[in-house]
Simulated scan of single mutants.
Amino acid sequence: MKLAVFSHCTIDEIKINDDLYERPGGPACYCGLAAREMGFDVELVTKFGTDYTFSDQLSQNKIKFQNTPSQKPTTRFRLEINDTDRTLWIKNTCDKIEYTKTNADGILISPVFDEVSLDVLEKIKSDANLVALDPQGFLRRAGPDGMVSFERTNLDLSNIDVLKSDPGEVNNLTGLEGLEGAKLLHKKIDHILYTNKRDVSLFYKNKQYSITLPNMDIFDTSGVGDIFTATYCCTMLKEKDALWALSFAGGAAQAALESKEVGLDKIPPKGATQTNASYFYNIIKFKDV
Rank of each mutant, 00 (worst) to 15 (best):
Q66D: 07
A272D: 15
A104I: 05
I124P: 01
K125A: 00
L88K: 01
A4C: 12
V120A: 01
V162T: 08
N171E: 15
D56G: 01
A35Y: 09
N67K: 09
I109P: 09
E13K: 11
E177S: 15
T174H: 09
K207Y: 13
T212D: 11
V170N: 07
R23L: 08
L118F: 08
N61K: 11
Y209M: 04
F65E: 02
K91D: 14
A4R: 07
R86K: 13
L184R: 15
A245H: 07
I284T: 02
Q57R: 14
D145P: 12
Y281E: 14
N171P: 02
D241T: 09
S126M: 01
D199M: 01
C9P: 06
E239S: 02
D265P: 07
G271A: 15
D83M: 08
F65S: 04
S201D: 00
I211D: 01
G271F: 12
K187D: 07
E180Y: 10
L20S: 07
V162C: 07
K287V: 12
P27E: 04
G106Y: 08
V262Q: 13
T68I: 13
E37A: 11
I189H: 05
D145N: 14
G39N: 03
K164A: 14
R23M: 14
K164G: 11
G106M: 10
G143M: 10
V42L: 08
N206Q: 14
D127P: 06
S210M: 05
Y30V: 04
N196S: 12
A35W: 05
D18W: 04
S259E: 04
E261H: 11
M236I: 07
S201W: 04
D220G: 02
K72G: 03
L79A: 04
P167K: 06
L193M: 04
I192Y: 06
K205C: 09
K287W: 03
V45Q: 10
E115Y: 09
G175P: 13
F286E: 15
L108F: 12
E80L: 12
G223M: 08
N196K: 12
T174Q: 01
T229I: 00
I218L: 12
D85Y: 08
P27V: 12
Q208G: 09
N92K: 10
R198I: 09
